[in-house]
Design a protein around this nucleic acid. Structure first.
Lengths: 129, 129
DNA sequence: CTGGACCTTCCAGTACAGGGGAAGGTCAAG
DNA sequence: CTTGACCTTCCCCTGTACTGGAAGGTCCAG
């Protein structure tokens, strides 16, 4: 299977697949006599796995770690659990930070909803920030 | 006031202040006879405003827009309100996306908490993703 | 007058996940 | 035979907010 076919089958682009190969997420495939990349059918599953990892908020580097462990013949379960734990922790933190930011902005915005430009002294940039 | 003094007074670095100047957030200050930047006292307020904008989640480009409006002699209230509105909308979306992601990962993680490596077929990367 | 702290400019790189496009080779259809 | 779609490598660009470092000039204390 050629790179464009794999790209279409996996819902991505040829450019991205070459990038994944460069990042070690896809093993270098065989080549046809003319130098075209020739992927085995299971490459689709591999790309799908990358996408599932991304959907779980993992970076490509983390997904690669998982694949490296599996490719070394070991089960990556523990590592996956740790990564998910860490990701979960990050997400909770992000959510609480964003919630605090939302509250701050809501207050500012409510204040800014009653514009009184005449009360803004020209030497300050903005009364609302 | 020299750049290092302003940096300390405003809680940032000289490097960052040069960067702000390059990005149009700080007007080019006067220079001493030897070429050193010489800031007026109100530069501190300007840098503080940048920091407050950042604390509200605005990008430097957006903060610059606000300053440009004010520097043009107009009151940026309406624009600030619009920016805050947009930012608020983005944040709500981010929060709901993160919440969904958190739920997804929680499920995956609970699943991964009972590792059964023997049930992982070697030809798939990970049973949990 | 020397040393160190400060200042100047400019170039380059960080993380992240690719995208754009040039220059050239290949393949199948008409 | 040619055209168009596809493939190859290569290098640079995107956005965000800085940071690091080199090479050189300046200021002040001792």
């Amino acid at each position: 299977m050629k790179i464009g076919e794999l790209a279409q089958a996996a819902g991505t682009t040829a450019k991205t697949l070459r990038f994944y190969e460069e990042q070690g997420l896809l093993p270098p495939p065989g080549r046809t006599s003319s130098g075209y990349r020739d992927y085995p059918p299971d490459a689709i599953a591999r790309v799908d796995f990358v996408h599932r990892g991304q959907a779980a908020g993992l970076t490509l580097a983390q997904i690669r770690q998982i694949m490296d462990i599996r490719d070394a013949g070991r089960a990556p379960c523990d590592h996956v659990r740790d990564l998910l734990d860490a990701r979960l922790h990050d997400i909770e933190q992000q959510i609480s930070q964003l919630s605090a930011l939302r509250d701050t902005i809501t207050d500012l915005r409510d204040d800014a909803a009653h514009p009184e430009p005449e009360t803004c002294s020209a030497d300050q940039v903005c009364r609302y920030l």
